[in-house]
């Protein structure tokens, strides 16, 4: 009876969990795919990012393993730029070099097409991007580190026209993303904005940090970003604990005290075991003689 109760308790818990798992679509039914598509200009290149999601149990979930194709140009003369497959975050991306779209004229047309996926319907998204310009100058005057940005947009003749009121944000690159530096500032009528850069941001061992200037979702030039590496950070000398003899070190750097203790115990115990084997041999010899 007790066993039955235990087994029931165990499987009740197991099945309760298993119920929540079954969210997969039926095998033959294709799900309607939702795509979002963003284009980022990073220095002179373009990064195309497509995100795929589907509605399961009334909730949108990002979907992996969706095949997508990236194109540029109008629908009647599209050029295939490359392929991608969405990851577990539902994201597929492609870096497009400026020479790949040199034949195009601004505004550039980019599109992403998800097709021939066995579980999902085909889906297409397009984006028009006006080519913008974001220039970053880094200068140090009287020990004050200054970042000067210029923002411009290309007009129909290909000339750069300064953009007023474009919101710019500075970042520094960190291990897991971008760290904002100060608040966003807007450009003046000459398309310029100046930031004072703090001097206490940790850099690498030489003080190098990657400074990023970014404009996000601007109505005219969209997403645009530029970056430079500069020795404006505080040099950080990392202490390599792993090279010392510590508990958390690699095996080559085990603490001497631990090596001695473990080996002393091992020799002590296995010494006795070895002695017992000798005694067993003695029993054998005595038996032979008698």
């Amino acid at each position: 009876m007790y066993l039955l109760v235990l087994v029931l308790c165990f499987f009740n818990q197991g099945f309760a969990q298993a119920e929540g798992e079954d969210q997969s679509p039926e095998a033959n039914e294709k799900l309607s795919l939702r795509m979002s598509f963003d284009v980022y200009k990073i220095n002179d290149d373009y990064k195309l990012v497509a995100k795929a999601r589907v509605k399961i149990n009334n909730r949108y979930q990002f979907i992996s393993d969706v095949n997508v194709d990236f194109y540029t140009g109008e629908s009647d003369a599209q050029i295939h730029l490359g392929k991608g497959v969405t990851n577990e975050k539902g994201e597929a991306s492609l870096i497009v070099k400026s020479n790949q779209i040199s034949a195009q004229t601004t505004p550039y047309a980019f599109s992403v097409l998800a097709q021939n996926n066995s579980k999902y319907d085909d889906e297409e998204k397009s984006v028009m991007v006006n080519s913008g310009q974001l220039k970053m100058d880094l200068m140090e005057e009287d020990s004050v580190k200054t970042v000067k940005l210029f923002v411009g947009a290309l007009d129909s003749t290909g000339q750069v026209v300064p953009m007023e009121d474009a919101s710019c944000q500075l970042y520094v690159k960190r291990l897991f993303g971008k760290l904002p530096v100060g608040d966003a500032e807007s450009t003046d009528e000459e398309g310029q904005v100046t930031f004072e850069f703090p001097g206490d941001i940790p850099g690498d061992e030489k003080g190098n940090i990657t400074i990023i200037a970014s404009i996000a979702e601007n109505e005219v030039i969209g997403n645009i970003e530029t970056n430079q590496i500069m020795a404006w950070g505080q040099p950080i000398t990392e202490e390599y604990f792993f090279s010392k003899r510590e508990l958390w070190s690699a095996r080559a750097n085990s603490p001497i005290s631990l090596i001695i203790i473990v080996n002393a115990v091992l020799i002590g115990v296995w010494g006795v075991i070895f002695y017992i084997f000798l005694e067993i041999n003695r029993i054998h010899k005595i038996g032979k003689i008698s």
């Binding site: 067993i280 029993i283 054998h284 010899k285 005595i286 038996g287 032979k288 008698s290």
Partner: peptide
Amino acid sequence: NNWKGTSE
């Protein structure tokens, strides 16, 4: 193991 049951 040659056990003879001797006292030794």
